[in-house]
Structures are given as C-alpha cells and as structure tokens.
Design a protein around this nucleic acid. Structure first.
Lengths: 345, 345
DNA sequence: ATGAAAGCGCTAACAG
DNA sequence: CTGTTAGCGCTTTCAT
C-alpha cells in the first residue's frame, strides 16, 4: 500500500495462472493457439491483477512498434488536419497508432522531425508530397524504414505514391475559368521552393493559359504564404498594381478565402468585379458567401488508401504502383460567367 | 550487400570506437561525462556506421518513452487541430513526441482509444475536458500514468487542470448580447451529455438570461451536433418554430458559421433580421462576412501551458493547482446593436 | 499445447 | 572517467 508497488508483469500473471511465461504470452497474442481452459485461467489472472501489456517490451522483443509516423508540412491548413482524422481512423482499425510531425514548410526541419520520429521507433513513415531533402530519403533507405508519399503523384518515379496530379487538376480549373470567358487572369499560389504541389499547380495553370493564348502580367503572378493572410496580401498587391484582372485563380482555399475577405474589406465585389477560385475544397469553402468555386481533392480517399498501403508495405505485400485519384471542380458563386462584353473590358 | 544486413547497434559502435557498451551509451546521452577524446571516437564511429538509436530499447531500459498522449473529442473542429500544433511544438522543444487519439464525442470510445495509447507506452496523458468515463480515471490511476485535463476548469477538483471557465465565458457573451438590447434570445449548443463544456456554456448563457429576467422559449433552446450542419439545422428549426428571435447565441463557432450560412440560404439577413454569436474564435470567424462576434479562447496559451505542465508532472514537480486562463469577447458584425424600438418588436 | 531458455538493444548501478 | 554486470518485460524458437 505504501511502497511503490511495481507494475504487474506478464510473469506475475503467468505465475498466478499457473502457466509458463511463454504460454501466457501466447494466450494474449494468439488465443486460439491455447487450450480453452488455459486461456481462461490466464484471462482471469489478467483481470484480477489489472494487468496491462507493456507495449515497449513487446516492441523490443518482436521488433514491431505498431506505430506509423506521418509528417505534414503544417497542421494549420484544415486540409491536413482533416487528413489526420482519416488516416488515424483507418490505421487504428488495422491496429496501428499514428504519430504526427510537422515542419512548417521547412525542408531542413522536416529532416529533424523525421529523424526524431524514426529514432523513437515506427514501422512505417508517411510523407506529404514528393519533394524532400536528400537526407530524408537517405535516412529512410539506410534505416530500411518502409515509406510512402501522399497527396501528389507529380515529380517522382517512386512506386509508393498515392494522390493526384496537381498539374492536371490545376490545368482543369484554369480551363474552366477560361471557358467562363475570363482573359485577364491573375494567379496566386504558395511558395514553390521545395514544394512540388505548388510548382505543379502553377505549371498547370500556366499550361491552360498558354493553350488559350493568354499571357499573364508579371504583377499578376503572385506568390504568398499558405494562409488567409497570404490571400489578403495578394489582393493588396493587385490593388497596388493598378488594373484589376477579372479573376484570380488561387493555389489553395486558404489563399482564396483570405482573398475574398480582403476584397470585402477593400470594397471589391466578388464575383462581379473580381472572380476568385480556390483549390482543396475545405469545408468552409462551401459555408461562406459567396461560396467558393474550387477543386475538390479526395482527401478522405487518400487517407484510407494510404493507411491501407503503408500497412501493406510494412507487411511486404505492397503493390509497386502509384495510385492516382481523381479531383473535380466544384462550382459555386465566387466564379462569374463573363458575358462577351465584360470579357473584353 | 545481399544478405539482410542487421542494423548497427550501440554495441557495434562501441567495438569500433574501442570503448565499452556502457561508455558508448554515456557518450550519447551525457556527452559531458566522457573524456573529449573518447567522445570523438564514439561520434566518429556513429557517423561512419550510420548508427541510429533504437528508441524502443532505450525506453525499455530507462522506463521512459519520451512520448505524451493527447485524446481529443474530435479533430474536425479547427479548434482542436490547431491545438495539436501548439502542443506539439512545445512538447518537441522539451524532447517529447506527441501521440494523438480522438473519439468523436463518444465516452466509451475514449476509453478504448486511451487504453491503446497507454498500453503502447506513454509517459503522460492529456485529456480534453473534465467529464470522462470512470474507466478513464481508473485506468490512469491504476497504471499510475501522470495526466492532466485541459480546456475546461469546470466541474472538477483535480489539481492538474488548465483551461478556462466555460460557464463564465458563456455568461459573459450572453450579458454582452443582452447589453446590445436583445430580449428575444435563442440558444444553440452541442450535446451536453458527457460534455461539461457544453453543459457549462449553456448554464452560463442561462445565468445571464435569468439575471436579466429573460425567459427562453423551449423551441429556442436548441441542441445540435458540433458541426456546420448542426448550426444549419438550428436555423431550420427556428424557421419551423415560426417566430424568429433577434439573436441566436451559439456554443461553438462551427454552429455559428453553419447558422449564418443557412441564414444566407434562407434569406434571413444577419445581423439585421437575426444576430448570431459564436464561441472559440477560430480563424475563419474573422474571414467571413459578416464577421463573427464570438469568444476568444486562449487556445495557443493553453497548449503551451499544458505542455509545460504535463512535463512537470512527469518529472514530479507539477504544481498542484489548476490554472485558469482568460477569455475575451471579440466584436464583429454578426451581432447587431438593437435600437430601443427594435428591441421591443 | 506447453515449458525452458535465449535474446531484443539499451540504460543504470556499481566497481575500479 | 571507463568497464562490467544486470536487468527492463516481452516474444520466440526449440524441445517436450
């Protein structure tokens, strides 16, 4: 009662149940490989003594942690924090715990965060995007840790990649915007350095513009941080630049929502004076006014497939093939269909 | 090259550096307790062999996992996912990894999630709120796992609690609303069962109304799920009930934002026809139109303090005193100041 | 089906 | 300051 009583171990349980340590162990992990009577004796002892398994010891002996790490660029974007949810649920069903890291879009920090995660012991690693510091790949390979990259299938040949083509998706929404009669187009995305998603989204936008023979003014090619403020800043720059385009195509919903907000503050009517589109389709995109026209990313689907895939790779049964999912355009009020007259002016 | 080469262990490193296992271990964990020359020999060996510490073995031997678990009711509310961020950053600085669980406001599921986390091995546990299944407290105490409750200081005497008084905060915003001339008040909150925050927020609202001698119609006392849809549903019910109040006070921003959206769909002008207030002050509350009048919760501050506190408790130096932080009202356009005439009508 | 024994890779006394 | 020696609590052969 007073002495610091040691935690009860499997050995204690075994003694009480009158079986060997090995048998007790088997009773817990493979109940069907033990006589029913023995099983009951062990289970009773477990209950009576309030035994709880020591996962650390299990992991050391079995060389399996039942833990998977995921490293996000940020958790501030609801896109990623919702992804945690899907991932976590799916992994839990397969008996895995999810450990999370983030690095605020800093590749060097990503290396550190990942190292800490890997050292602490995980059976597999999930990365966002395909553009990472060499040290990341080196560490993962040296240490022979199974890993997979999600969200983007661009710019890589690695087989274990699950996501979508950012370039194509961006191309798609840009074409859509052009089809609505827009010719004066501004682009606003996040930093492209060390981020193939940003890069490919921009490339996709530009592909569509080029195809339609539309050139973008340099001042209308904007790069700001991944945040509401980034979007607000973009609008300020547009205003400073003098002439307003008829539409601003954004690389993320965060940009777009911030931009719309700034338009409201600055008295620019959306979409009458300026149309705005996003990318991601976070929940708030549909709850605001005007509703945001954007690209829906199969976030939940990615989470489910990624969970399944990383477990498969861990068990050495992963298919060596990238999985490319579909995106689709969601039309709401923030994008205006220009009449011919307006298109010109 | 071809055989599955075993991972290099500390023992390998020690041999190569010509020191004993113990010395190598000390070199890594207490570099200053080792002669400089020895340290260098070990470090060189580490680099040459690409050694990475095995955290699992460390944990078993030292009985320390350097991991802290946090269990959220949901990750879908940006409030909580942003909290992950603060917590994680602060813990990382102190050398701890964060492991996350969630249960979608289901107390029985919380028990299971927590058990998995505790079994897998954590040095401490962070819970949201004070209302949990008995099994939770029982498990934590039996297993002698340090824990702490955050977000709410209501309905508990447990010393390790960091958050704010939901009742007081709710009372505050309700008084504010009343001071703006509102007398026809509807309330919309989340389910109160197993959730002392919901319960205390509602109680706080009612305290203020009672004090002002305002009675709430039963149909105006609404309880819907914690989601945008929950807010939308509340508005639909108000419409069905016939007469509209002049304001609806919401228990979370999610409710409020959903409600405002539904008003827009249903042609109810906010705030001219109906004022709406929220609770939490998530980022989107300020980026929408009309901006949401709400209660700012010191989410980041909580994260920082909680991280500090759980580590202190783990190290047996936690102050046995709850920490109550301040909230404050953020005024935006969704709450209208009623003129005397309107107040009556 | 069960028991015995050998680690998993590291930390933590304790000697020297 | 360094080496030696026990474990940490469990899984896993291998016999029986």
């Amino acid at each position: 009662m007073n002495l610091k009583k040691k935690r009860v171990t499997l050995e204690d349980v075994a003694k009480r149940a009158n079986v060997s340590l090995g048998t007790a162990s088997k009773a817990l992990s493979s109940p069907n490989k033990v006589r029913e009577k023995t099983l009951k004796r062990v289970m009773d002892a477990v209950d009576e003594m309030g035994y709880v398994r020591n996962g650390v010891a299990r992991s050391l002996a079995s060389r399996k942690t039942w833990r998977v790490a995921v490293v996000y660029p940020t958790l501030k974007n609801p896109m990623f924090s919702n992804s945690i949810d899907s991932l976590q649920q799916s992994l839990l069903e397969m008996g895995y715990q999810l450990v999370i890291g983030s690095h605020e879009y800093n590749q060097k920090r990503e290396v550190k965060v990942l190292r800490a995660l890997v050292e602490s012991g995980v059976d597999g690693v999930i990365l966002v995007g395909t553009d990472h510091d060499d040290a990341v790949f080196h560490m993962l390979e040296t240490y022979e840790t199974p890993y997979l990259m999600m969200w983007s299938t661009d710019e890589t040949n690695y087989p274990h990649t699950i996501g979508f083509s950012n370039r194509q998706a961006a191309y798609g929404i840009a074409r859509h915007v052009i089809a609505k009669g827009h010719r004066k187009v501004a682009l606003c995305g996040g930093p492209v350095e060390g981020n193939e998603r940003s890069r490919q989204r921009r490339a996709g936008f530009l592909d569509a513009l080029k195809e339609a023979n539309i050139s973008v003014k340099p001042q209308w090619l904007i790069e700001t941080p991944f945040s509401l403020d980034g979007g607000r800043e973009a609008i300020m720059r547009l205003i400073e630049a003098g002439e307003l385009p008829t539409v601003m195509v954004c690389g993320t919903d965060l940009h777009a929502i911030g931009a719309i907000h700034q338009c409201q503050l600055s008295g620019i009517h959306v979409p009458d004076r300026l149309s705005i589109t996003g990318f991601d389709d976070i929940e708030f995109a549909s709850a605001m006014s005007p509703g945001l026209t954007t690209v829906r990313v199969p976030m939940h689907h990615i989470g489910v497939e990624v969970a399944r895939a990383i477990v498969a790779i861990i068990n050495d049964e992963g298919s060596a093939e990238a999985l490319e999912l579909e995106t689709r355009i969601v039309e709401r009020e923030s994008l205006k269909h220009l009449k011919d007259g307006e298109a010109a002016g």
